[in-house]
Computed example of a mutant assay.
Amino acid sequence: MKPTIKKDLAEQLAPKIIDMARARSMRAGEPLREEAFAKELGVSRSPIRRGFALLEELGLATKEPNRGYYLTCDASTIDISDKLLDADPFEDFYLRVVDDVLRGEVPTTFFEAELIRRYEVPRGQLIKVLNRLANEAMIERKPGQGWEINNFLHDSNAHIQSYRFRMAIEPAAILEPGYKVDEVAFAKARQVQQELLDGDIFKLSRSQLFQIGAQLHELIVRCSGNAFFLEAIRRQNQLRRFMGYKANVDRTRLISQCQEHIHLLDLIQSGRRLEAADFLRNHLDIVGRLKTAKEAKDELEQQKIIEGSVST
């Protein structure tokens, strides 16, 4: 019986491993060397091994006794994003906790015992969700005991600054002299955006919708070949995840975003990178303003509800 893979960390590393393999033009049958990937990604060999194990679980790698892991197909043909979008059995509970945190119903500092009583769930299930939130930078474990919510979540000015930062980084990535379109990944990204327009917008969970959008923007930046740009956008995606969860409730708004994403891909692929950079900068500006305005409106309505309940 195979041991259970700790997917929280493995799911973060697996796409990066594939990105590296694609950058190296690795082919089916080539070995995945723990030491090389660990050094490049700045982690120890143990988490890299977990990432390899997840790739094996997904059918993208195979493990040979006493030899290690090997790719089962050419890296250029792999799009791991759709394989990692499978529904988590704890997804509903995870989103319930997210909603309560975003609404301020979970104290800024809290203990596991408090949430176990609040949600009436087994400790193991709660720990899995808390670890996921910690990996996503929503919360962090305090020294000793207890957890603390990231102040960024309720700082509207930080959200605005995040989009301003992305407006500087992402268009600049498109204009990098070494920019090279990943044709296979672009085709897959266009297909996913079209599937959203064909109905997936109203079927997928908020976390899945956010992940699709984040992966598309990471793809566009990754093709710049600039590792510093890519690391910056990955960090931003991690920090803004929960603002995205709030905004994604209005799913009809995502229709125009998907259409704009497809147009952006077309501009880049046709070699009109200067036009694409301007289009992306404007896209981020508008989306950032809309999300910030919606968040402010939602917070005002929530405050009115709280004040109304107190007065009665």
Rank of each mutant, 00 (worst) to 15 (best):
Ser76Met: 15
Thr77Trp: 10
Thr77Val: 12
Ile78Glu: 00
Asp79Ile: 15
Asp79Leu: 07
Ser81Glu: 08
Ser81Gln: 06
Asp82Pro: 10
Asp82Gly: 13
Asp82Tyr: 14
Asp82Trp: 01
Leu84Gln: 11
Leu85Phe: 13
Ala87Trp: 07
Ala87Phe: 12
Ala87Val: 13
Asp88Arg: 10
Pro89Gly: 10
Pro89Cys: 09
Phe90Trp: 11
Phe90Pro: 00
Phe90Val: 08
Glu91Asp: 11
Asp92Trp: 11
Asp92Gly: 13
Phe93Gly: 07
Phe93Thr: 12
Tyr94Phe: 11
Leu95Lys: 02
Leu95Val: 06
Leu95Gly: 03
Arg96Pro: 02
Val97Met: 06
Val97Glu: 04
Asp99Ser: 07
Asp99Tyr: 07
Asp100Val: 09
Val101Asp: 00
Arg103Thr: 09
Gly104His: 03
Gly104Met: 11
Gly104Phe: 06
Gly104Leu: 03
Glu105Thr: 10
Glu105Val: 15
Val106Ser: 01
Val106Ile: 15
Pro107Asn: 05
Thr109Glu: 12
Phe111Glu: 14
Phe111Ser: 12
Phe111Gly: 10
Glu112Met: 13
Ala113Gln: 12
Ala113Glu: 15
Glu114Ile: 13
Leu115Trp: 04
Leu115Asn: 02
Ile116Gln: 08
Ile116Phe: 05
Arg117Val: 09
Arg117Asn: 12
Arg118Met: 14
Arg118Tyr: 13
Arg118Glu: 08
Tyr119His: 03
Tyr119Gln: 05
Tyr119Trp: 01
Glu120Trp: 09
Glu120Ile: 13
Val121Phe: 06
Val121Tyr: 11
